[in-house]
Nucleic acid binder design. Structure first.
Lengths: 225, 225
DNA sequence: TTTACTTATTAACCTTTTTTATACAAATAT
DNA sequence: ATATTTGTATAAAAAAGGTTAATAAGTAAA
């Protein structure tokens, strides 16, 4: 399992440097990208900057507690789907329940066995499959790593925004993506673009791959296939 | 949280009747449907029959162990997405790791706190939300995510207001929605539209899906089916 | 660094669809 | 029967999206 790179980023927030180091070491050797934070506020900043796939929060931290960090992040739309786990030495039921009800996905007691932690993390990732690197949809193929789209064996080269837009729509075929949703995920929340920008990109994709791969749902959004 | 029905089924397999009873009681009062099994083979049979959304497996059971049951189920495509949790008194790391690597989603040590168990179960269900976006009503199907309405397998495309109106009426079949209620929920409180607007939309829905799906209750409002 | 080229965005304008208003017919209740 | 409410056709208004071309911003090669 180890060695190869997973393309998945994990943020760990804990005020004990030892814990940070042990966990980092183990996650790195499993192939995860690791970001660390020493307190709650740093965790929020780094989460926003690195947009990790999974976040490990110590409950007791100076400044903001793990629970507070979790609620704040869960209120941001980009962290709605992020896996969040709590870590704590406080081994009591009500704390655990509070953590899970605050929006946490798992709750792990210290002392931690690195192997168990990794197993749990892997188990959580097993359920997430949207960011797969290679999509095969009917006669179309989308390779996120090589940035290549294939229709009936023929290769097409899309520009980056075109590609990301297509990949997003294709990640859930026949789901209608709202314009806001598209803007959030392809352009990010900070960037503001005019209201014809999406259309123009859609048009270019259609021009290259054919009109029928993306359908418009007027007043709502766009849908793949 | 308790009382209302969740429309979610949980299968519990354990050879200790006491455990079965305690967990059943707690899950039932949370609104879950509960199925029980006394051993591994029974668990497999009942899983296939009831197709539960979540399965709780005791590791040590006569006949087949929880791990064996898990592998067998995971090999069947219908249980690929099912949430599976293990329960055991064996509190050691390697067992836990084995459980998670066998395809389990969570691993809980006995003795169990029913409240913690429920919190964990709720946390797992929080990630699965497809059933809310999808309505199935007789021979009609309304998919809020895909914005598709289906009648007897045939797909219909409705405009946004038409869709929202239908989805509202269908959200509580046979409830009569007052005109004001409809205006509030579909148009919002600020917008003011003429008094024939609803009728016109109702007409268009009837035109597309047939006259009988929405009935008029004169002087009161409209009702689905 | 400059040049050539690609990509991203915007603005202007066009087309289509959706939504609403109007007018009148039909239905229903009192 | 009459007043009230709802149904229907039509058309206007509004909204949404499509298209094109121009411009800005990046990138890579010379």
């Amino acid at each position: 399992m180890a060695q190869e790179t997973k393309n998945r980023t994990i943020l760990i927030a804990d005020d004990e440097p030892d814990i940070l180091e042990i966990i980092s070491y183990n996650l790195l050797s499993e192939g995860y990208e690791v970001i660390t934070a020493k307190n709650g506020n740093e965790a929020i900043e780094k989460a926003n900057f690195y947009k990790p796939d999974l976040i490990i929060l110590d409950v007791m931290m100076p400044g903001k507690t793990g629970f507070e960090v979790c609620s704040i992040l869960r209120n941001q739309s980009i962290f709605q789907e992020t896996i969040i786990l709590f870590l704590t030495a406080l081994n009591d039921d009500s704390t655990e329940i509070k953590g899970l009800e605050t929006g946490g996905d798992d709750f792990i007691n210290k002392p931690i066995s690195p192997k168990v932690l990794i197993s749990r993390i892997n188990a959580h990732f097993r359920r997430i499959k949207d960011s797969e690197d290679f999509l095969e949809l009917g006669d179309m193929t989308i390779d996120r790593e090589k940035f290549i789209v294939t229709v009936k064996g023929e290769e097409f080269i899309l520009a980056r925004k075109e590609f990301e837009l297509l990949a997003l729509l294709a990640s859930k075929p026949s789901k209608v993506f709202l314009r806001n949703e598209i803007l959030d995920k392809v352009w990010g929340t900070e960037v503001i673009v005019g209201d014809r920008t999406i259309d123009v990109h859609i048009r270019k994709i259609r021009q290259k791959l054919g009109d029928d791969c993306i359908t418009t749902v007027k007043g709502v959004g766009y849908r793949f296939k």
